[in-house]
Nucleic acid binder design. Structure first.
Lengths: 104, 104
DNA sequence: TCGTTAAATCGTGATTTCCCGATTAAAGCG
DNA sequence: CGCTTTAATCGGGAAATCACGATTTAACGA
């Protein structure tokens, strides 16, 4: 994973500076804990519907939360048919943690 | 350093989700790079005036920035006479980085 | 005691974030 | 082609953040 720029760091911190978004990223660490779906969550990621349900927010809010996490590079999106599946970007999260330990 | 709670994590991320505050925390990693002051910066921390000058913001803004970092546990404040000196809380920063690598 | 200096707090307008419902876009099925 | 499902985007009101100047508090010296 490339070294994070100042802007990327700020975007990542902003994205995680919200309790629900922080929780979502944690949940995605255990994709199998979500209800079953057409595509295997462990491979393709978790469907937005399931994230929305667990977070207890509206569909539009869930979609926007994931867009923020995606723009910050912390998750990736996998579109299969009508579904959007979200997965942690482990390399980016690792780079963020190491950035805090080394640079910040 | 104790394990960070969800709330502490969010507060720390929020505090760092601002380019100037993130930069300040980085600057404090090299206290000697600031202009000389009555008390040795390496021991007691950096005087608010110097932080304000480098950040290029007003006195009140600088004071509030440091208050945010302090409430997030990322810096400590050392009052000596009329001066407030700020220092990185290395244990908290370390705990934050490890939290990202392990829990988030 | 009276200034002076340092810094926290107060009061503010401007901007941004938050979160929703409504709408739109796209996929898939009968 | 309609109908349904999924999710992104739009529009907006409420709340929080941002950054400032003004004021207050506290420490110190003359």
């Amino acid at each position: 994973m490339a070294k994070l720029t100042e802007d990327e760091l700020v975007a990542a911190f902003k994205a995680l500076g919200h309790p629900t978004r922080l929780a979502i990223l944690g949940w995605l660490g255990d994709p199998e804990s979500f209800p079953p779906q057409d595509q295997p969550a462990g491979e393709v990621g978790v469907c937005l519907k399931h994230i929305q349900a667990r977070a207890g927010v509206s569909q539009s809010t869930a979609s926007q939360f994931m867009a923020v996490l995606q723009r910050a590079g912390l998750v990736t999106c996998n579109r299969v048919g009508p579904w959007s599946h979200y997965q942690r970007n482990e390399a980016a999260i690792d780079a963020l943690g190491k950035s805090v330990l080394a640079d910040v």
